[in-house]
Amino acid sequence: MAQVQIVSDGPDYRHQIRSGDHVVVADEPAALGGQGAGFAPFDLYLASLSACTAITLRMYAEKKGWALGEFRAELSSRRDDAGKLVVHRVLHATGPLTDAQWQRLLEVVEKTPVTLVMREGATITSERAAG
């Protein structure tokens, strides 16, 4: 499905994440000992969800012939009283969408591929490289 490689190129917590020909820098903010040179890990988590949100809704709207105009999603996260992560999305579009179209988009966004995986969780395994 997807494959990335992360390489520590220092200093501190700065890392390069590669996927094919694309590179993203990850780091921690200065308050956590990093340099703030890139996305923090939970920023990347939200970025993944926001990208899937925007792409899925753009594809859906194009298929339906709806003009989204400029689309924007603002995502935030917090921990609830039980310590569980809660993510909230606020969606914006400048296109002339009706209330019924917005309702349908809000239904579609609940079923984007990344939304579904984040809700169900994932099995994560690890191993030491040979050699």
Rank of each mutant, 00 (worst) to 15 (best):
G10Q: 15
L105P: 00
K111Y: 13
E28G: 00
T115M: 13
H92P: 01
T53S: 11
K111E: 13
G38E: 03
R78D: 11
E107R: 07
D21E: 14
D80I: 09
G10A: 15
T112M: 07
R18D: 11
S76R: 13
T112R: 04
V24C: 03
V109M: 03
A54I: 08
L75H: 10
D21V: 08
L49P: 02
L32E: 11
G65L: 09
A54Y: 01
M59T: 07
Q103A: 14
V117R: 09
Q5L: 15
A51E: 09
R78N: 06
E70S: 08
I55R: 04
M59K: 05
P11A: 14
P11F: 06
L68I: 02
M1F: 08
P113T: 07
S126H: 05
G95P: 09
A40D: 05
A37H: 08
G131D: 11
A122R: 04
S8I: 14
L116Y: 03
A47K: 01
V86Y: 06
H88D: 12
S19N: 14
R89A: 14
R18N: 14
K111C: 11
P29L: 06
Y45K: 06
V108W: 00
A61P: 00
A122E: 06
T115A: 14
V109K: 01
V4D: 05
R72I: 04
T98L: 10
T56C: 04
T125S: 11
A51V: 06
